[in-house]
Design a protein around this nucleic acid. Structure first.
Lengths: 238, 238
DNA sequence: TCATAGCAATGTGGATACAATATTGACTTT
DNA sequence: AAAGTCAATATTGTATCCACATTGCTATGA
């Protein structure tokens, strides 16, 4: 009685833009669009049943997060970060995630630790069955850690960096051998649970470095257009 | 000769939105709008001679940077970060700026060092004459350092954090006694110039901590609306 | 045959018009 | 007189429309 019929329609809570945002973001991170794919506003809008206005907002937002590139008068396309971008992203990520761990020391309650362990459990379950969900969950573990700090901006940055790391991994990583070692996550939780600051920070540092080397091992030429062209040009004697 | 006449017309290079962006950002950071000021799209657009479309884009962008708050169906207003936000921002800033210094070790060329010293010189000049420009320049020093790393995302984050720090300082800081000690900047450059990683990182850490304590010393009540009202209410005996 | 200029098509940049929602003030009722 | 309700206003959310830039094709000329 107290609720008007309009209450059932959850429209006021950032209705369309946010939905489209999530859709596009997932699509990009799941590699439904490969890097460099053009993202015309009207096609997407028509497909999703919204106007170009919404799509443009979303593209601008995704551009801010580095997931799409926005060339003036030439349209948006899925971002294609370079290997150097990859190194930069992981460098920042390492610094921030160590800060996350450092901030968490002495502040984790028992329920929080249980939440972390539950997450790692689901990571373990997905590891064997669903490999695409596994990548997703591995990233979410880091996001969850960041959120537990209660530091909003730190959480936002880590979320963004995890997304971009995912792109880097899909571009340059080996065919996801073991994207985030679940055992490393467990060790980290253990160190956090006993408030071992030194160990926890060190673990996180090594963990990120491990991801970095797994992701960026292929330091071959396949990152830059000019490099690619150079290879072909040599073959043609140019 | 090399430049065509059309080159002089700089219209395609992000014409209006960027200009409006800079205007609003400066206005907010210079405290032309005090925290909490409503930012109606109509008025701003009319005042600046652009349509709501542009203003909306800019507000969204500034919202992404934490400078304006964007309440659905209730309009935008200048962000009013809490003291806790302040602590969080400075914590992240400390971690990232140490990374900046760490990344810079062994990579600074002589021209770069000269550029840094020139900047600090202008800081010194402005320190006595223009106090508002002094704050601006002190922040730009940190942005400049970040840009010299060549790490785009690190540079972006530091820029954002410096802006938000400026807001925090204007809200909670003491009447800018000495926002960024220029001497500390000089010491930092010296350590960087001789590639003393330990010293440089330590200096930057202390420098940020110094700013933090200068900014957040006033842990008084003047951050929340209810607290503000409480003060007035007491005076009126309510 | 190839290069270049013109033209058409696609798609973005921006502005205006319309619909939905919140806020404010006045009015009615108890 | 106070409180609650309703209507008017103002402001945001969204869609459509026009203008311009870019791209690819075609035709013409050397």
């Amino acid at each position: 009685m107290t609720s008007k019929p309009s209450d059932s329609i959850q429209k006021s809570a950032v209705p369309k833009s946010d939905a489209v945002y999530r859709i596009l973001k997932r699509a990009i991170l799941d590699q439904a669009f490969s890097a460099g794919t053009k993202l015309p506003e009207d096609s997407i809008g028509e497909r999703l049943g919204v106007s170009r206005t919404i799509v443009r907002q979303v593209l601008a937002r995704l551009n801010g997060e580095g997931l799409v590139e926005l060339r003036p008068n030439k349209g948006a396309c899925v971002s294609h970060p370079s290997l150097e971008d990859g190194h930069n992203i992981f460098a920042v990520r390492r610094a921030l995630e160590i800060l996350v761990v450092d901030s968490l020391i002495g502040k984790l309650t028992a329920p929080m630790i249980r939440e972390l362990e539950a997450h790692v459990d689901s990571e373990d379950r997905a590891r064997l069955t669903n490999s695409s969900a596994s990548i997703q969950l591995a990233g979410e573990f880091h996001v969850l850690l960041a959120q537990l700090t209660g530091n909003a901006i730190l959480s936002r940055y880590v979320t963004e960096l995890v997304s971009r790391s995912s792109m880097i991994l899909s571009l340059y990583g080996r065919p996801h051998s073991s994207d985030c070692a679940v055992s490393e996550h467990r060790e980290l939780i253990a160190a956090l649970a006993r408030n071992d600051r030194e160990k926890a920070c060190a673990l996180m540092g090594h963990h990120i470095e491990a991801i970095t080397s797994r992701a960026l091992l292929t330091s071959s030429s396949e990152n830059d257009l000019s490099d690619l062209l150079a290879a072909y040009a040599r073959e043609e004697g140019l």
